[in-house]
């Protein structure tokens, strides 16, 4: 009974792996792809800043100060004659680096706390979650300011401050994930064949928390970039003459209507970088959690 075997070939569809499927879904989200391109552009600018920058970001040329954008200085110069384009490029290094550093620091601590709280449960979970309550109750910028002030104003201390303020976000998120996962069949199966707690955590629970973690991290990048720049703006973060975007806006604040380019370009850089991360976060969330798709 193989009469139909030689008939018209059955149209085959290439079977995609889950990852390839997600990638394909992500690339269909136009705004998310745009966001990703913006981030990649900033990342390239940041990495190759020393090669791309036409001038030393700290080199002063006072006679040529406050020059409007021109062929030589694409984004003009500030009051000390420093090239704004070069400073903006180096600023990308600082802001992206700061974002990455804080997200990694806070993400590691938060994930660890969240996994332990969710997996162990009981009084430990209760205690850890009450601690996150306390951090959530705090107005984050005031706490970050108080920490940065106590440690002494510097970029590094601002990063520590923002990390201290943001880790509970990850802890809550991961705990919630682990609570759901911990009683799922595949975890019970692993436990029934005698897998150790360490193995279950590493092999089964942690990998399954990665996608929400990634979504959160993407949003946090934007938040952190704004927070660090805000701290620098009021004097508790990077200090002049560091070419940090918040510092650049602070230095140009008295020239906002007369020499707009001093503050406009760093502000736009921040707007695009943060919007890029937010768009990618939106796209990732839609792809990884189709239930939230709207």
């Amino acid at each position: 009974m193989q009469a139909t075997a030689s008939a018209a070939p059955i149209p085959t569809r290439r079977v995609l792996s889950p990852n390839a499927l997600m990638l394909r879904r992500f690339t269909k989200e136009k705004t998310a792809v745009f966001g990703l391109l913006v981030i990649l552009l900033f990342a390239l600018l940041a990495v190759f800043a020393p090669l791309l920058a036409p001038f030393d970001p700290l080199a002063q040329d006072i006679p040529n100060g406050l020059a409007p954008p021109s062929a030589e200085h694409w984004m003009g110069t500030d009051k000390l004659g420093r090239d704004i384009f070069s400073r903006m490029l180096y600023g990308a290094r600082i802001s992206l680096g700061a974002g990455l550093g804080v997200v990694i620091m806070a993400g590691l601590v938060g994930t660890l706390v969240g996994i332990v709280a969710g997996y162990v449960g009981g009084w430990l979970d209760e205690a850890l979650m009450r601690v996150t309550d306390i951090f959530f109750a705090f107005p984050s910028l005031i706490l970050a300011m108080a920490i940065a002030g106590a440690l002494g104003p510097s970029l590094q201390n601002a990063l520590i401050a923002v990390a201290v303020v943001t880790w509970p976000v990850y802890a809550r998120l991961i705990r919630g994930q682990v609570l759901v996962l911990r009683d799922r069949e595949f975890v019970l199966a692993a436990r029934s064949v005698g897998a150790s707690h360490g193995l279950i955590l590493r092999r089964h629970l942690f990998p399954n928390t990665l996608s929400p973690l990634l979504v959160q991290a993407s949003f946090e990048m934007g938040t952190v970039i704004l927070a660090v720049a805000g701290l620098s703006f009021i004097g508790f973060g990077a200090q002049p003459p560091t070419p940090e975007w918040g510092v650049m806006i602070s230095e140009g604040r008295n020239y906002i209507t007369t020499h707009w380019w001093l503050t406009f370009f760093p502000a736009m850089a921040m707007l695009f970088a943060v919007a890029g991360f937010n768009l990618v976060g939106d796209g990732l969330r839609d792809v990884l959690d189709p239930r939230l798709r709207r």
């Binding site: 704004l226 604040r253 921040m270 943060v274």
Partner: peptide, 13 residues
């Protein structure tokens, strides 16, 4: 998108 990504200290200035 802009409202969520704009540094508010720049907006204020």
């Amino acid at each position: 998108l802009i409202g969520g990504a704009m540094p508010i200290f720049y907006v204020g200035l």
